[in-house]
């Protein structure tokens, strides 16, 4: 974004709202759409992605002086794949039901372009502290986006939030919200909403 390298704190704040990975950069769409039918899988996914993103960022930042330009993408994906294997085995061991529910989407974190783009843009160029802050900020932004979409879909689709009933029983639940089309519709409309708020802010100041 800026010519000089941003500091750790700037990186941290950037990830949450101004460069939110989902709403601003449209990265990592596959889990955003696939696991947001309810809050619990969405937050588990956010935690797994955060673990992989932070570890990969720190490790890539530590080995950045050894990276060869033509091999760096391969090194990034291998690093990410290693951490994803750890996260996947951990989920299968301690949260077996959740790991069954998330199914292929945990290993698909490997192909999440958010993590590769952070390795490329930040971690391979800056020191460990900055990379760590960037990872934490981006993870929080990603978790925020997942939680917002999952809230809308779970409340409208099954009338619950974290499994607790929140809507009165006369409210008809919208079955389409928990099905695949609902994911596309909610994300499309939320993107429009975020864009609209950003536009209003820009014009009012």
């Amino acid at each position: 974004m800026v010519a000089t390298s941003p500091t750790a704190f700037e990186r941290f704040l950037n990830g949450i709202i101004p460069e939110n990975p989902v709403y601003r950069q449209l990265l990592g769409m596959c889990p955003v759409l696939a696991v947001t039918g309810a809050m619990k899988p969405a937050l588990t996914m956010a935690a797994a992605t955060a673990f992989v993103l932070i570890c990969a960022n720190v490790l890539v930042s530590l080995i950045r002086s050894l990276l060869k330009p033509h091999l760096r993408i391969l090194v990034f994906t291998m690093t990410i794949a290693t951490f994803v294997t750890i996260a996947d085995r951990f989920l299968a061991a301690y949260l077996y039901e959740m790991s069954k529910e998330l199914g292929p989407y945990v290993p698909l974190i490997i192909a999440n372009c958010l993590i590769i783009s952070r390795c490329e843009i930040c971690a391979s160029k800056q020191s460990v502290g900055v990379a760590l802050a960037d990872g934490v900020g981006m993870s929080l932004g990603f978790a925020l986006a997942l939680a917002s979409i999952a809230s809308v879909r779970e409340i409208l689709g099954s009338g619950t939030w974290f499994g607790l009933t929140v809507l009165p029983s006369f409210w008809p639940t919208w079955g389409i919200m928990v099905l695949p089309p609902g994911a596309f519709l909610v994300l499309g409309l939320l993107l429009g909403l975020v864009e609209w708020i950003g536009h209003r802010r820009a014009t009012s100041t």
């Binding site: 994300l187 499309g188 409309l189 909403l193 609209w196 536009h199």
Partner: peptide, 15 residues
């Protein structure tokens, strides 16, 4: 509508 242009409308059509 302006806010939906680009990715927004694409996602709704995909839905």
């Amino acid at each position: 509508p302006k806010p939906l242009q680009g990715a927004g409308i694409t996602l709704i059509v995909a839905g």
